[in-house]
Lab assay of single mutants.
Amino acid sequence: AVSDRLIGRKGVVMEAISPQNSGLVKVDGETWRATSGTVLDVGEEVSVKAIEGVKLVVEKLE
Score class of each variant (00 low, 15 high):
A1R: 03
V2L: 13
V2A: 11
V2P: 15
V2D: 14
V2S: 10
V2W: 04
V2N: 10
V2F: 04
S3E: 13
S3H: 10
S3I: 11
S3G: 10
S3F: 06
D4F: 03
R5G: 10
R5Q: 13
R5C: 09
R5P: 10
R5A: 15
R5E: 12
L6I: 06
L6Y: 07
L6W: 08
L6V: 06
L6Q: 03
L6M: 07
L6N: 03
I7Y: 04
I7Q: 03
I7F: 05
I7K: 05
I7H: 03
G8E: 03
G8V: 02
G8S: 04
R9W: 15
R9E: 05
R9A: 07
R9P: 02
R9V: 04
R9K: 11
K10Q: 09
K10L: 07
G11M: 02
G11V: 03
G11I: 01
V12S: 09
V12R: 12
V12Y: 15
V12K: 07
V13E: 00
V13S: 02
M14C: 05
M14K: 07
M14Q: 11
M14L: 13
E15H: 09
E15I: 11
E15R: 13
A16W: 14
A16Q: 14
A16C: 07
I17V: 08
I17W: 02
S18E: 06
S18K: 10
S18F: 11
S18W: 09
P19M: 07
P19I: 08
P19Y: 13
P19W: 08
P19Q: 08
Q20L: 14
Q20V: 09
N21Q: 12
N21M: 11
N21S: 12
N21D: 07
N21P: 02
N21C: 15
S22V: 11
S22H: 12
S22P: 10
S22D: 13
G23L: 03
G23W: 04
G23C: 02
L24D: 03
L24E: 05
L24T: 10
L24H: 08
V25T: 03
V25Q: 01
V25E: 00
K26Y: 14
V27L: 06
V27E: 00
V27K: 01
V27P: 00
V27C: 04
V27H: 01
V27N: 00
V27Y: 02
D28M: 09
D28T: 06
D28V: 09
D28R: 05
D28S: 06
D28E: 14
G29M: 11
E30Y: 12
E30S: 05
E30V: 06
E30H: 08
E30G: 08
E30M: 09
T31A: 08
T31Q: 06
W32K: 02
W32P: 00
W32D: 00
R33I: 06
R33P: 15
R33Q: 12
A34T: 02
A34C: 04
A34H: 01
A34K: 00
T35N: 08
T35A: 10
T35G: 07
T35I: 12
T35D: 07
T35P: 01
T35R: 12
S36Q: 01
S36V: 01
G37N: 11
G37V: 14
T38D: 12
T38K: 10
T38Q: 12
T38G: 14
V39P: 08
V39T: 14
V39M: 14
L40G: 01
L40C: 05
L40M: 07
D41Y: 15
D41G: 13
V42H: 05
V42F: 07
V42Y: 06
V42A: 07
G43V: 02
G43A: 07
G43T: 07
G43S: 07
G43L: 08
E44C: 06
E44H: 08
E44K: 05
E44G: 04
E45K: 10
V46Q: 00
V46L: 02
V46K: 00
V46F: 03
V46C: 06
S47E: 10
V48R: 00
V48T: 02
V48C: 04
V48S: 01
V48L: 02
K49R: 14
K49I: 10
K49P: 01
A50N: 07
A50P: 01
A50G: 13
A50Y: 09
I51A: 05
I51R: 07
I51F: 08
I51C: 05
I51Q: 05
I51P: 01
E52G: 04
E52R: 09
E52N: 09
E52A: 09
E52Q: 13
G53V: 04
G53D: 08
V54P: 08
V54K: 07
V54C: 07
V54M: 09
V54F: 14
V54E: 15
K55W: 10
K55H: 13
K55L: 15
K55C: 08
L56D: 01
L56Y: 03
L56R: 00
L56Q: 00
V57A: 05
V58L: 03
V58R: 00
V58N: 01
V58C: 05
V58T: 02
V58H: 00
V58E: 00
E59V: 14
K60N: 04
K60F: 04
K60L: 07
L61C: 05
L61N: 08
L61D: 08
L61W: 10
L61E: 07
L61F: 11
E62M: 11
E62N: 15
E62V: 13
E62D: 12
